[in-house]
Computed example of a mutant assay.
Amino acid sequence: MQASTEQLLWMYETMVAIRHYEETMASVYLEGKLPPNIQKGLAFDIGSGPVPGEMHLAAGQEPVAVGVCAHLTKEDTVVGTHRPHHFAIAKGVPMNRMTAEMFGKSTGLGKGKGGHMHLFDPEHRFSCSGIIGASLPPACGAALAAKKLGKDWVAVAFFGEGAANQGSFHESLNLAALWQLPVIFVCEDNHWAISVPKEHATSIASVADRAAGYGMPGVRVPHNDPLEVFDAAGAAVARARRGEGPSLIEVKTDRYLGHFQGDPEVYRPKGEVAHLREDDPIPRLATMLKRDKLITEAEDAQIIARAKQRVAEAFDFARRSPYPVAHDALNDVFAAA
């Protein structure tokens, strides 16, 4: 499937915005967690600073989010993982409210009660979860709802290669195939399930091969490339909209940062990240766009500036927003009798 110029430019600018967002969050997250004059690593306080709690960032994995979401509409559902920002941004979740949620502010998507692993936006049909493998069953539910309503909406479940060994993976694929649900299962294979390499936890080289056991198409995208993801996702989304059932896509992608911020990454071979960054998909796409005369150097600079401004405004909004008041603690927690 050939991407249009509009889609190519959207994918590029969205990737730039995601990368700058994640790099900004990496810096902001450390505020207050590493006090001065104390040796780094011995005083890391996960509860301090403007963004408390754990933080999982997706720098390097942008192609998966944009290549899939380029085919989606507002009515389609996306269920992400504990590393969710790239999916949320690509699905159109407001960056201001998403960031405020991570800051624990009342203007956040969940009024500051969920944090970065629990981002919910019903308007844009996006959600995520900190539980490994938890994205697949809800995506099946959304797909079943679309089918019952007679809509051509699709649902996408993103998950990591480690989650492909969970029972929820197998149960969801079996159910989706049995009921011919309009759902696309997308596996981000970044090789590391926290600190465990794929070959030490998974009995086959390609998770996509498992699709055959459930009677659905399975495709492995071998490169961390948004255009290759776009091609594979286009076929799967079109198939789902036609009522022909689910598909499984596995994408070889790269995680440039640790499993979480503060991860010492002692499990990674020396020089691995530097090697991966040599084939960074963002400058690679920029080079292609310039080569094909779809953008000029000046237009590229404008795209980057626009993306950075958007991110800066989101973080400024989050910092300026108020914290929830104490008596709101139980609001939106229990259903009314």
Score class of each variant (00 low, 15 high):
65 A>M: 01
215 G>R: 11
13 E>H: 09
64 V>T: 15
185 F>E: 07
239 R>G: 00
333 V>F: 09
75 E>I: 04
101 E>W: 07
220 R>I: 03
21 Y>S: 12
335 A>I: 12
31 E>K: 14
97 R>I: 01
180 Q>K: 15
59 A>D: 14
212 A>M: 06
313 E>C: 08
103 F>I: 03
93 V>R: 02
190 N>D: 15
27 S>F: 10
234 G>C: 09
268 R>L: 12
68 V>R: 03
2 Q>N: 15
69 C>H: 00
65 A>R: 04
275 H>Q: 12
257 L>K: 05
112 G>M: 05
250 E>Y: 07
213 G>M: 08
262 G>S: 02
85 H>Y: 11
229 V>G: 06
203 S>T: 12
140 C>S: 10
1 M>D: 12
175 L>E: 08
305 A>G: 14
253 T>L: 04
245 G>H: 10
110 G>D: 10
241 R>W: 03
243 G>Q: 01
215 G>T: 11
128 C>W: 05
88 A>D: 05
163 A>H: 02
179 W>R: 09
21 Y>D: 11
92 G>I: 06
178 L>S: 12
94 P>S: 01
159 F>H: 08
292 D>C: 03
174 N>A: 13
303 I>D: 08
45 D>H: 09
201 A>R: 06
284 R>Q: 11
139 A>R: 04
141 G>K: 00
93 V>W: 11
175 L>S: 13
163 A>R: 10
188 E>T: 03
5 T>A: 15
61 Q>A: 11
191 H>M: 12
187 C>V: 13
4 S>V: 06
84 P>W: 09
45 D>T: 07
142 A>M: 09
86 H>F: 10
94 P>Q: 02
93 V>A: 10
178 L>Q: 13
253 T>P: 03
167 G>H: 10
300 D>T: 08
17 A>E: 12
11 M>N: 00
166 Q>T: 15
109 L>M: 14
39 Q>N: 10
96 N>L: 01
256 Y>I: 02
260 F>I: 14
8 L>T: 06
280 D>G: 02
150 G>L: 02
85 H>V: 01
313 E>T: 13
220 R>P: 04
256 Y>G: 02
92 G>S: 10
52 P>E: 02
236 A>M: 04
114 G>T: 05
303 I>T: 04
15 M>K: 00
194 I>E: 15
233 A>T: 05
327 H>Q: 14
174 N>F: 13
241 R>F: 01
